[in-house]
Each structure stands twice: as C-alpha cells, then as structure tokens.
Simulated assay, not measured.
Amino acid sequence: MDVEIFTHRNCTECNLLLDFLEQRGLLGKVKLIDTELYPFLAFERGVISTPSIFVNGKLIYAGKVDFQELETILSGGQVVRKVNREELVEKLMEGIVDSFAATAWLYVNRDFESFMAQRDFVLAVTGLALSENPEEEYQYLRNVVIKEGENLLQEWEPRILRNISSNFVREIYWLYGNKVGKERLFSIYTPEIFAHWLMVRGGSVGRVGLRIHPISDTKVMLRITKAYSYTVENYDQLWERVEREQRAIKSRDLARHLVL
C-alpha cells in the first residue's frame, strides 16, 4: 500500500497528524511530501488543502483527517463510509472553509460550477472517497451547490471572512516575524493591494488558476472591501491567535526533533 501525505510545516492539522502517526509507530508506513518544497508536485496532484492523503494514488483526506480511520487503513483494514445526503453540503462547506485556497477563490469568483470540477477534493472532504457509490452522490451534491451556491456563500460568510483574515495575518507573521502596528500595516496594504493579494492567493500557482478582476469591478471590490474591513477591525485579536498557534507549532516541531 502506497500512502502519501502532503504537508506544510506551518499547518496545525499536519503537525497533529504527524504527532499521532509518531505515537502509533506508523510514520514508517507513509511518505511525507512537503508542499513548501514541492509546490508543483502538489499542484499537479490537485492538493489545495493540507494535509492531503493519497492511498494508492487516490485522494482520501483533504484538510481534516479521521485519525482512527487512517490508522485502520494503515493497519490493512477497510473503511467504508455510509452516506447521509443531508450532511453532504455541510461537509463540503466545512472542507472549503478549512482550505484557504478554496475559500479565497470561491469568495472572489463565486463560481461553484468550476469549483466542483475539483472532483477529488470534493470527494475527499465530504467522505465520499470512502463510500461505496461516490459518483451518484457527487452528482447529487454538484447539482445542489450549483443551484444554491450564492446562498451558501452568504450563509457561510462569517467563517469565510475569518479564514481570509486569519490567513492574511498569518502571512504577515511569517513575513515580518514581529507584530506590525495596525496603522503602518494597513497603510502598506491598502484595499487595492489587499484585493490583489486575495486574487493571487486564491488557488493559483504562478498564473495557473489565476483570475484577476479589475479594480473597477465594483461588485468584486465590494466583497473584497468587506473582507479587508473585517481584517482591519479584528487585526489585534487575529495576531494574538496566530502568534499562539505558530509558537505551539514551533514547540511541537522542536519536541519531535528532540525525540527523533
């Protein structure tokens, strides 16, 4: 059995997964691929959320991982999930708001039809990848979200805004290392610069997948300005949370290296 796990060093879920696998003595059964070092390989495989786990070339998990299920799979057992159609839309949206690439792209472009073409990701985050009849359920889900897409984006907007703003602050943390004063930061990152950042970060590598909307597109800019305002208003709280998160990751990583 060939099990590949695409990770990122600053991904909390990835670090929790690695801790679990190490504690269970299962690290030797998987191949770890760092998306920071091999971005084009990740892009080629359709990875838009970490951790992403492939079993014999098939994407099984994206973002959230059921650790007990994975342990069963790595131990040679079989996992088959029962499908509840009433839960599929919520599972999909949970998977989307757990992925910054998916969140940013959908928030800016409002195009569920194109997004649902990421079939492997959809199957993984909804659990359909481990179901007996994924194709029928996928088509059902696709029809629902294409029809209800705008309503879903409005319903999930609070989670979407938190995702976008948290990831912006997280990247500022990585870029500067120390907290930048709010006034200085947002004099550098004007709404127009923030808009460019959000469009570029929305699921693109280079120009692949990139959609640039003109600043004169008032509908798009209205949405982006809302995300920008949310980020400005919550900057201090977001910074504190990101700082705690990143320190915890560094401490866990150091402890893992000391054990090894």
Rank of each mutant, 00 (worst) to 15 (best):
P51Q: 04
E13H: 12
K29Y: 09
L27D: 05
P51V: 10
K58R: 15
V55M: 03
Q23I: 08
V65E: 02
Y61W: 15
V65Q: 07
C14R: 00
E71T: 14
E90A: 11
R24P: 01
L41C: 00
T50Y: 09
A62H: 00
R45N: 11
K64F: 07
E71A: 07
L17D: 02
F20K: 03
I48H: 00
V80K: 11
Q23N: 15
I48K: 05
E86L: 13
K82D: 09
D66I: 01
F40N: 12
L41R: 08
F20T: 02
E87V: 03
L88C: 03
M93C: 07
L37V: 10
N10W: 11
Q78A: 13
D66Q: 08
E86R: 13
V79P: 06
E13C: 12
S75E: 14
E90C: 02
E36N: 12
F40E: 13
I60G: 00
N15D: 07
A42G: 14
E71N: 07
S52R: 00
L59N: 12
R45Q: 10
E87L: 13
Q68T: 09
E36Q: 14
Y38E: 08
F67D: 04
K29S: 12
V89L: 02
E94V: 12
I53C: 02
Y38H: 09
Q78C: 07
L74F: 07
V83A: 02
T72K: 13
I53K: 01
D19K: 15
G25I: 05
I60D: 04
V47K: 03
T50C: 10
T72N: 06
E71R: 13
L27P: 01
M93V: 11
F67E: 07
V79E: 07
I60V: 14
K31M: 11
F40K: 13
S75Y: 08
E13A: 12
L21Q: 12
